Simulated assay, not measured.
Amino acid sequence: MGILTAILDALLQFIRRNPLTCLILVILALTAPALLKGIALFILYFLLGMLVLGVVLTLLFRWRIRKLREGMEEQFGRNGEEAFGRRAGERSQRTGTVRIRRTSDAPEKRVASDVGDYVEFEETHDER
């Protein structure tokens, strides 16, 4: 019973906010019911189409996420094993120890030494 009164209240609020639209709908219902039926069917098909489109897009999104997850599992190993090049059960040697490894054979300096000028400067402090 509460849902019926909520629907009626919402309908009355719509009529109060849009009296001209409701008047046009009543005139259409009385004078051209076939036209009103066509408009109602169009709105119904439009809403159903949007619903189907939403379901299809949701399924496509879930499928794509599943494929990405499977790709990551293949790349990093299943269940965290071999994640980032080490086994899940392994620990580093000591906590707080930092190791820096060279990962590529890139040269130290990428710009030739004769490029640019050296500008000597001195830091000054303004005391105001």
Rank of each mutant, 00 (worst) to 15 (best):
L57A: 14
R102P: 00
K67V: 05
L48T: 05
K109I: 04
L44F: 15
E73R: 01
W63P: 00
L51V: 09
R87D: 14
R64A: 08
G49N: 03
V55W: 14
R94W: 10
F84H: 04
R87E: 13
E90A: 12
F42S: 02
R62S: 09
T103F: 06
E73V: 00
R99C: 06
I100H: 03
T97Y: 09
L47G: 06
Y45S: 06
R66Q: 15
M72R: 01
E74A: 01
R87Q: 12
R102V: 08
A88Y: 07
D105L: 09
R66D: 14
L53C: 14
I65A: 10
E70N: 03
F84C: 04
F84D: 05
I65Q: 11
G80E: 00
T95I: 12
T95L: 13
K37A: 15
L60M: 14
L41W: 08
N79Q: 07
E73H: 01
E70F: 01
G38M: 04
R101V: 04
G89C: 04
I39T: 09
A88R: 12
N79D: 09
N79C: 03
E90T: 11
R91K: 15
V55R: 11
R86L: 12
R62I: 08
G38K: 05
W63V: 04
G54T: 13
L35V: 13
I65E: 08
A88K: 14
V52R: 08
P107K: 01
E74L: 02
R64H: 10
R69H: 05
G54P: 00
V98Q: 02
R87P: 02
T97R: 11
Q75M: 04
E108I: 07
G38T: 03
E108A: 11
L36R: 06
L57Y: 12
S104M: 09
W63S: 07
D105E: 11
F61Q: 15
Q93S: 09
R101P: 00
E74Q: 02
L41R: 10
F84S: 04
K109H: 07
